[in-house]
Design a protein around this nucleic acid. Sequence first.
DNA 1: TAGCGATCGTGACATTTGTTGTGACCGGCG
DNA 2: CGCCGGTCACAACAAATGTCACGATCGCTA
Lengths: 258, 258
Amino acid sequence: MTHTSLILERFVRKMESRCSLSPNDREAVLALPVMQRTYQPNTYIIREGELLQRHCAFIISGFAIRQKLTNVGARQIVSMHLPGDLLDLQHLYLNYADHNVQALTLMEAAEIGRPALRRLVLRNPRVATAMWIDALVDSSISREWLLNVGQRDARGRIAHLLCEFAARMTAAGMASDSGYELPMTQEQIGDAVGLTAVHVNRTIKALKAENLITRDKRHLHFHDIEGIRAIAGFSSLYLHLDQITTDPEDRPGDERGA
Amino acid sequence: MTHTSLILERFVRKMESRCSLSPNDREAVLALPVMQRTYQPNTYIIREGELLQRHCAFIISGFAIRQKLTNVGARQIVSMHLPGDLLDLQHLYLNYADHNVQALTLMEAAEIGRPALRRLVLRNPRVATAMWIDALVDSSISREWLLNVGQRDARGRIAHLLCEFAARMTAAGMASDSGYELPMTQEQIGDAVGLTAVHVNRTIKALKAENLITRDKRHLHFHDIEGIRAIAGFSSLYLHLDQITTDPEDRPGDERGA
DNA sequence: TAGCGATCGTGACATTTGTTGTGACCGGCG
DNA sequence: CGCCGGTCACAACAAATGTCACGATCGCTA
């Protein structure tokens, strides 16, 4: 049906933002069997420890998070995903899930069976490259989060989260120039940056008091984005937003390793 | 020369611990052009921001770390690598390095040119799968570190680091049953778990006082590994040590996505 | 052999962050 | 309409962690 093909068009666009595809590749992607599915807020999509013979989900609308729990139940959100993100490449080749994946808001996803996806990767090198890059960017973000939580103080951490989200929402065409809808509660922000909800509250209050941001319900408005960036020490390089690969073989002549 | 082939044998073994290879695959890996190289302690192997048209390194002996710096110079170690680890898959398909890679000790590495490695991946699906898995395990470790730094207290963080290292060193055949050589200073431990060197010192002192560990120069000895595991809340599942894939196509019949 | 830099050890004190508890607000639902 | 759960706000106090300062040790090299 045409609805399915709209979704796959979007998936193609996502892949092409990572690696340019041939007409063949495009066709193969468009032929993928997908199943659309809706998740209520807070529903688990994958549970840690679960045996994986599932599918990978592509987010159509809404937001998802990935998180882990310590033995004593403390929760760390390890990543956030927005519409257009591929939801778990991270588990494509593993037997057991090592973390939980959860819908943050009401969420619609297109699910692609693992076997179909693996076959696509086998037969279409440029698609494979696009998926590699997607997974690598994911890892890069994860490293930046580790730096954030490990080395910045509360202000810096929160400011950094807001900046990253701004950059990603903008890239997804979901932000106005001065703000966006932030779909997280203060408690969730705390779980993402390793702080308690109370301290998140204090810190955001301070940011508001300095006229850097305002928050109205879920809408976040930047009054001084440069100020926030400075506090965060934010640079978007780690998002690899401009990463485009044209040749999976990497033929540019300089074969130093040879 | 025979020395080179010894190194590649080891590389093959690494790949085979991730995905079983065909004789063809093995041959292709063994035919890779490698260049051996020695790095002095603290030498940079890759620098953040650098344009990547380099090689990937396979560690023969010694240790390496990957790290990032904040704008104010605070350092977060985001991962550690030991002999037998593939040192930067993380950058295989990216244009710019998003973090630094540094030798921790005197280190010998075998360097494989990026083009050669990419070609190998294109032509040998099982090798590609092995490398996917390697990269995914890397990400999984990164997530666990994030959980560690974000949610555990100082004792838990350090205990967890020690447990992880024990598990990995054991898997690499480099640990005795009661301990191993830990190649990090207290300051480096601090940079890995998001604490100051002073506090690392305090915490380790407490662990010693409770007769859980002793440290003699660089040698770490566990007196009560179960005690340490309990403090860390350690479970080795996230290391995916038993992960072996046999079929890149994932054909087991259940094509739910279809 | 003496000196030097890196690492470890430790104490006193400062600061950040967590904990507990309580109330206001708001939106959904009986 | 009124209740109720979730979220936000905020205050007082407790605990964890950072900062600064200094000395001890040890291996290396001039």
